[in-house]
Every structure is written in structure tokens, then in C-alpha cells.
Write a protein that binds this DNA or RNA. Structure first.
Lengths: 208, 208
DNA sequence: GTCTATATACGGATAGAC
DNA sequence: GTCTATCCGTATATAGAC
């Protein structure tokens, strides 16, 4: 079978380095990762890292940028999908994130801890208003409140609850496993359950 | 006025170094902090850091250990307080953590990101079963469920919701501020509101 | 494009004077 | 106890051969 561009790209040296860099940075952060680790991990020579990406810093920026995209683009597209309704959007966000983070559990903590010292990266990268404040989702939340005569909720409280319930367990997974005395398999099962439960709970909160 | 031991201790060189180390480690983590930064921050000489604490690693372990204590001891004592009831415990935990993290916003992300590579620190330090699994609080949760004939909830889901709603906004504060286009003052106001709201929402979830 | 060897800088830690 | 000066290992980055 002939290889398409994507497949070729994935096998190139450049992509191998990027894949290893992603893995290491996600695991240990910028300061905790050595370029030698990345080189070793990808089986290439250290000099090639600088040949392709110029510096550790530049390579990191690339990974960070892509990670932010991956994390926020799905939020943006779900929240602004014109065809789905309110409930469907909540279900989609939760399912989407739980599955993504089960697959790649280190992304959220990576983003949050690196953002701590460089919050500007996010501001430059993500149009906050379009992602959430002016999203289709938010007007649907408004409609929901009016239609069902339920108490208004500050959108920020709403999103904190939604992301808190969905993302926090992954950010805190070692702590959760320790507190609950459970292993990775138990943890994943719980997260799978939450795909159904969180949307339910979110609705219960709205009605309270 | 005569100074007591605590005050003297707080002014000592040793304590000044510890205070700066705490600040820097909380902000930038172990790998991101240079011993020179700590020395400069505290106005003391770099050599004194090693004189008092032997090594960066040892100093870090000390800070980490104290931070874990601070974070979990309150959880433990609230959850095992024999005189408070179920609702009071929830209110106490939320109030306690919101106030603590408003005062010192970097602690939770510090703990979580450092724990990522050394989960054992937590296991050694915190008796998971006593903090939560065998706590007075958990038996009260059981009673609550039976008495009110509400649906059972896995305790792990419960604690994930409680801590997720309470802790996550602080862990993700740069992201929350960006998404909501708010400043520190707005953020603190929201967090203050959550002291009342989260216990309410937690109850709504239980009844759902 | 890929390698080996190396320049250069940085960070943790200590020796030794005061 | 506190300082200055310095050692030494380590990490990033580059020069230059192939």
C-alpha cells in the first residue's frame, strides 16, 4: 500500500523527535526535561534536535502550541456547533474530554502547570470570547434558564463545575488513586461512568 | 514585648530561607527553581542554603512534606470531626479550602505537578484510608443516603465532584481568567460565592 | 541529513577566610 | 554563622567530518 503524506511524515526524523518531545514535556514539563532525554527516547542523535528545531525552547513552544490547540479546539467546536442542543453539547464535551484524557492523561496537568508561569501563551492562542463567552452554548444556557424558569447561574460557575468535575480527576489522578486506594483500571472505569453521570449532575445543579 | 519562640524562629536565617524556598518551589516547581533564586529572594547567601539544608533536594523534601501536611491535615480533621454532621462537614471543607487557596493559590498545582513524577511521596505521607475511606464523613454519607432514600453514589465520584468543584478553579485559574475574561478580583469574588454554592450543588447532586 | 567531538554556560555544592 | 571565591558536573548548543 502506498503511503500517504501523513504516514510518511509520522516516520520522518522530525516527527520522531516531536513525538518524543511531546511525551517527555507532557510528563516532566519544560524545566524537568533534558534534550538528551528527548534524543534518547526517539533513538536519534542529540545534534539533530537542534538541526530541526533550533533550540529546546523553540521545540517546546511548538509542542505547547499544538497541545493548547488540541485542548481548546474541541471545546470551541463543540460549544459552537450550530446543530446540537444544550444537553447534547454537555454530553459531547464530557465524553470528548474523558476519552481524550484517558488516552493521554498528562495533557491537562502539563498545560496547567506550564501556563502558571506563562499565562500569556494562552491569551495569545485562544480567543476566550469565541470559545465560551460568546459561544452558541452560552446562549443556549440562557434559553434553558428562561424556558424552564430555573435560577440563573453565573456562566463562570457553570464552566468551573463542568471542567472541574471532568478534568480535575485526571489532573489529580495520583491523589485520587491514593485516596481511594484504586488502581489504573478502577480509575478508568470510574471515568467511563462519569461520561454519563456528569451531564446528569450538571442538570441537577441547574435545577437547584 | 518579649518574643516567643515562634517569632524568633520566623526571623531566623533558617526560616527566611524556608519561606523563600516555599514561595519559589510553589511557583516554579523543583526543576524550575534555582538555589540561587531562593538565596536571592531571601536576601541571604547561597552557601547558607547548603549550610542549613545540606542540598536543594533536602530543602525541597522539607517544603513538600509540609505542604502535603497542610493540604491533607485539614481534610483529615474535618472529615473525622466527631461532633459535626454531614452538611457541616461539606461546608467546612469547602470554606476551609477556598480560604486557604485564596491565601496561597499555588499550593494545589504545586502538589499535583510534583506528585505526578513521585506519587509515592503521598502514599508514604498520607494514610489514605483514614483520611477518606474510613472517615466519619463517609459513614455519615452512607447514613444520609439511607435516611433520605436517595440513590447511592460511589464515594470516589463524590470526592471527585467535591474537590473538582472546589480545587480545580484554583489549579486552572489562569485558564479560567482567560476564558471568562476576568481579573484577580473578579476571580476571588467568584470563589467566595462558591463557599455557599458548592455545598448546595453537592446536595442537589445527591438527590438526583 | 546524520554523526562525533567539543565549546560554552549554567547550576549545585564546597573550601576556606572572617 | 556568614561571606567570597571557586570547583565540578551537567545541559544546551554548535563546529565540522562524513
Amino acid at each position: 500500500m502506498e503511503k500517504n503524506k501523513k504516514e510518511v511524515k509520522n516516520n520522518s526524523t522530525e516527527e520522531k523527535i516531536k513525538a518524543s518531545a511531546r511525551k517527555m514535556f507532557h510528563q516532566k514539563g519544560f524545566a524537568g526535561t533534558r534534550t538528551r532525554d528527548i534524543a534518547e527516547e526517539s533513538g536519534i542523535n542529540l545534534a539533530l534536535l537542534n538541526y530541526y528545531f533550533r533550540s529546546k525552547e523553540k521545540l517546546f513552544q511548538l509542542i505547547m502550541s499544538e497541545s493548547l490547540d488540541e485542548f481548546f479546539s474541541s471545546l470551541h467546536s463543540v460549544f459552537n456547533d450550530p446543530v446540537t442542543n444544550f444537553n447534547e453539547k454537555i454530553e459531547a464535551v464530557v465524553k470528548n474530554y474523558v476519552e481524550k484524557m484517558t488516552e493521554n492523561p498528562n495533557i491537562p496537568l502539563f498545560i496547567l502547570s506550564e501556563l502558571r508561569n506563562n499565562p500569556d501563551q494562552l491569551i495569545k492562542k485562544v480567543n476566550a470570547k469565541k470559545v465560551f463567552l460568546q459561544s452558541v452554548f452560552l446562549s443556549q444556557l440562557d434559553d434553558e434558564i428562561k424556558a424552564n424558569r430555573i435560577n440563573a447561574i453565573d456562566p463562570m460557575h457553570f464552566i468551573m463545575n463542568l471542567l472541574g468535575m471532568t478534568v480535575f480527576p485526571f489532573v489529580a489522578s495520583p491523589m485520587m488513586k491514593s485516596i481511594g486506594d484504586i488502581d489504573q483500571e478502577n480509575f478508568d472505569t470510574l471515568m467511563d461512568e462519569r461520561k454519563k453521570l456528569i451531564p446528569m449532575w450538571i442538570k441537577a445543579i441547574l435545577k437547584s
